[in-house]
Design a protein around this nucleic acid. Structure first.
Length: 874
DNA sequence: CTTTTCACG
DNA sequence: ACGTACGTGAAAAGG
């Protein structure tokens, strides 16, 4: 047998050390991970360097130990373990188990005593290494036992051998105990002798050898303050020494043979790392996942699907080439009913009437994930998908909007299901992406369908438990169908209009460019903040107001303040504005227009935002310019798809403040909306204490900014930046606002309290957002979470309302038998296209439906208009 | 691939 | 004292 080596780790001490040494990290479900992360990096390093054959992690068992019998106050006055750390211990234990390292704790004994006892037992036969963050353990150092103490960080280690201790303190390891006895230890509440610190203790021990020897000879010590103290505290010194002594004969029921270390179960360790989002560790490590031991899945590759194979309820997955489902190819289909599973290639599915009939049959229930994508791509094959009964993407998003990614493997893992592989594993990524051979592809797709089938009851149960099933089933699921139809319908774009604007813009841009180069005295890339910074702040010597991580800030708010300093600034601001229009809205938009129908088909992300809003991509049609006239003209390029039709736009007025009025029940705010007042003017009246007719435009502007601030989770700094006033002034505005609207203040205080208690906030329809940072001791993280707690219920409830309005509106259009179509949603507005003869009826029903989507304690108000282009619908 | 800037609600 | 307004997506630069 080769040479044995035993590694003993002080679990509690190392976890504490890591926790305080590293910034608070969290994984995506909000669990703090820094202590586990630090422990892991330290463990990886030590195991690699020392290659131990036996290992053990010792933990403290409970609050009381045998030391409390002789000294009740032992470890008294300690701060209780922060919850951010407590929650990590279960994961730490799981991780240690995955490493296949023994862990041990024993009632009444501390980790130190377990380690001491085992070290003494082992050191006759083998080398022993002890790892801790606590210097007390250095008393265990011998010729065979080395004590590793972490310093700074967690992976940086100081090795205490007897000779190192001699060098450092001039003491033997056992004298460390005497030193502790004399000087005490604040962290363990060991008193020691008052007035004796490390220096004095060492000096005394060099002279006398030990606490006992010192007191035997104390008569002979010459008279001094020190001697008095020592005499006075003899009992305490001896007790302190006793407390500091690690007990090496603890009655432990674990033997050295039990400690053999076989090496980690790499797959389990990787799983835990995955769960905790230790991405860097996963990438760096050479751990291998064992050959997949996932339950075998039986599946068939079917060429001719017949009606009898298609059951009343099935999980089905449509595998796509990429996320651009309006343009990409289908790679194949997977079907399962939990019993048998089969794959059909795109070629074999295309033109199969049995499948088409089944997909279009409302009574055949489909369990899917991202059914909207399937709906859109099937629509291209002239198949109208109906009967989607379960959508895993939406369901998991509703349980927790922080769940990121749409890969079924990622979603499934959130619910503990791992029998499905990540797309990256099957296809590779980036340039190496490729479709595998059919057998592999077929299994992958069938596994996805099977995962959906298996998880459907679990995820629905979770939704019911959270009282979110309604929200999911009656709002998000029907909305997916509506959004899919909107996307497939698309919005017509007049390319010539865009081209013409582009030509004009290019001319203006190049003349601005020339002016700028002339004033700068050289050519440079105006689009590069780095180069621009050099020109403005070094060459031209303008004052640098704000800095970014990497250099000078050249953001618009900075440049605006510099306008009077140099005429180049105005040109740069104009250049920026036009360059943005040209690159993003002219060129960017033209790239997205489909040749076949001259339309853009955005994709609405329905399972992405933290608040419940939608987002829009490829192209983003939720940020088309409107605030400035030059940009607003881009909207002239968006037109109805048919001759004799118009674009009809309807938007909620002040929906977020109305939601706030409803949720806070502030009587002043509620009254203002019930009386139909201009809310910013009303706010100005209250904040500035003036009657309506004396509210100036500046007062109204300030009040409007305060209202925005309230919605965002106000801070004096944020408001001061927005209004360009001092923090003090901003703070005064806020105080006055909160005095005028005390119900709002109470609501804001309560929502933060509630979030701290529950760990999440909710919206009117019970949408949830978890806020793990709300209890952080990091000011920034906590403040951010507090503002989020204030903002999310407001923004999210507004999202609930307009989503409900979309569902209702869709039903109403069908009911009325109208041709008008919903095309877009832009957070608080809906855009339709309509034949002219339906305008009159839309003017009646759109506001009616939107205003009554959800009844609040204040009225909802909707404004609308229409025109021949989006620009004219104002 | 991250950073900065800027478009929207 | 700390250093921020809330929620998004796209383009361009520059590693």
């Amino acid at each position: 047998m080769g040479k044995e080596k035993l590694l003993l780790l002080d679990g509690n001490s190392l976890a504490y050390r890591a926790f305080f040494a590293l910034p608070l990290l969290t994984n995506d479900s909000g669990i703090h991970t820094n202590a586990v992360y630090g422990f892991t990096t330290m463990l990886q390093k030590i195991v690699e360097e020392e290659k131990p054959t036996k290992m053990l992690v010792a933990f403290d068992a409970g609050k009381t130990t045998f030391r409390h019998e002789s000294f009740e106050e032992y470890k008294g006055g300690r701060q209780k373990t922060p919850p951010e750390l407590s929650e990590q211990f279960p994961y730490l234990r799981k991780l240690i188990d995955a490493y296949q390292i023994k862990r041990y704790e024993k009632e009444l004994y501390e980790a130190d005593d377990i380690i001491g006892t085992l070290a003494k037992q082992a050191e006759q036969d083998m080398d022993v290494i002890i790892v801790s963050g606590d210097k007390d353990l250095t008393q265990l150092a011998t010729n065979k036992t080395t004590v590793y103490i972490t310093r700074k960080g967690i992976t940086d280690i100081e090795k205490y051998t007897p000779s190192h201790i001699e060098e450092k303190y001039g003491l033997t390891p056992l004298q460390i105990i005497d030193m502790k006895g004399l000087m005490g230890d604040a962290s363990d509440n060991i008193p020691g002798v008052p007035g004796v610190g490390e220096k004095t203790a060492i000096k005394l021990l060099k002279e006398y050898g030990s606490v006992e020897a010192l007191y035997e000879q104390i008569e002979g010590m010459k008279k001094s303050k020190m001697k008095e103290k020592l005499v006075e505290n003899e009992e305490q010194a001896k007790l302190s020494k006793k407390l500091a002594t690690i007990f090496t004969e603890a009655p432990i029921d674990i033997s050295l043979e039990d400690l053999n270390y076989p090496g980690p179960n790499e797959e389990e360790v990787l799983n835990i790392w995955q769960e905790l989002s230790f991405k860097s560790l996963i990438e760096k490590s050479e751990f291998q996942v064992e050959e997949k031991e996932t339950a075998a899945l039986e599946f068939e590759i079917v060429e001719n699907v017949t009606a009898d194979m298609l059951q009343d309820t099935m999980a089905i997955h449509v595998e796509l080439e990429n996320e651009h489902y309006h343009t990409c190819r289908i790679l194949g289909f997977g079907f399962t009913d939990g019993g048998s599973s089969f794959y059909v290639s795109f070629e074999n599915m295309h033109g199969n009437e049995a499948i088409k009939t089944w997909l279009e049959d409302e009574t055949k229930k489909k369990y899917m994930s991202d059914s909207k994508a399937a709906q859109a791509i099937l629509k291209r094959m002239d198949i109208n998908l109906r009967g989607v009964e379960f959508d895993m993407l939406l369901a998991s998003y509703i349980t927790n909007p922080a769940i990121s990614g749409d890969d079924i493997a990622t979603l499934a893992k959130e619910f503990g299901y791992t029998d499905v592989q990540a797309n990256e594993t099957i296809y590779g990524k980036g340039a190496k992406w490729k479709v595998p051979e059919e057998n592999v592809l077929a299994e992958h797709i069938c596994r996805k369908a099977f995962a959906i089938w298996s998880l459907q009851p679990i995820v629905e149960e979770k939704l019911k438990e959270n009282e979110q099933f309604e929200l999911y089933y009656n709002l998000e699921l029907p909305l997916a169908t509506i959004l899919g139809a909107m996307e497939s319908e698309g919005v017509k774009v007049n390319i010539e209009t865009l081209e013409k604007m582009g030509e004009d813009l290019l001319q203006k841009i190049s003349s601005l460019e020339a002016e700028i180069y002339d004033l700068a005295g050289e050519n440079f890339n105006i689009n590069s903040p780095k180069q621009l910074g050099v020109i403005l702040f070094e060459k031209l010597g303008l004052p640098a107001i704000k800095k970014t991580k990497t250099g000078y800030s050249t953001a618009a708010d900075v440049l605006e303040k510099l306008q009077s300093e140099h005429q180049i600034v105005k040109y740069i601001l104009d250049y920026r504005q036009l360059a943005k229009l040209q690159s993003t809205y002219i060129e960017g938009l033209m790239k997205e227009v489909h040749q076949e129908d001259s339309k853009v088909h955005t994709r609405f992300q329905q399972a992405l935002t933290a608040t419940g809003r939608l987002s829009s991509t490829d192209p983003n049609l939720q940020n088309i310019p409107i605030r400035l006239e030059e940009g607003r003209r881009i909207r002239q390029a968006f037109v109805p798809s048919q001759e004799g039709w118009v674009l009809f736009a309807a938007d909620y007025s002040q929906i977020e403040l109305r939601v706030l009025a409803h949720m806070s029940n502030d009587s002043n705010l509620v009254d203002a909306f019930r009386q139909g007042m201009d809310i910013h003017t009303r706010t100005a009246m209250d904040v500035f204490h003036v009657p309506a007719e004396e509210v100036t435009s500046n007062m109204r502007r300030a009040a409007k900014a305060v209202n925005f601030g309230i919605v965002y989770g106000i801070s004096d700094y944020g408001l001061s930046q927005n209004l360009d006033i001092t923090r003090k002034e901003a703070s005064e505005f806020i105080d006055k606002y909160l005095q005028s609207f005390p119900g709002v203040k109470e609501y804001m205080d309560n929502i933060v309290q509630d979030a701290k208690l529950k760990g999440y906030v909710t919206t009117i329809l019970n949408r949830r957002r978890y806020l793990p940072d709300i209890t952080s001791r990091n000011f920034n993280l906590r403040s951010f979470a507090e503002r989020t707690a204030m903002n999310t219920p407001i923004q999210g409830s507004a999202a609930d309302i307009i989503k409900k309005a979309m569902v209702d509106m869709d039903a109403r259009l069908k009911e009325e038998g109208l041709q008008s179509k919903l095309l877009l949603q832009v957070h608080d507005e809906l855009i339709f296209e309509a034949p002219k003869d339906e305008i009159e009826i839309l003017e009646r029903i759109v506001p009616e439906v939107m205003e009554h989507a959800i009844e609040l304690s204040v009225p909802l108000k909707v404004d609308f208009s229409y025109g021949n282009t989006w620009y004219d619908a104002k």
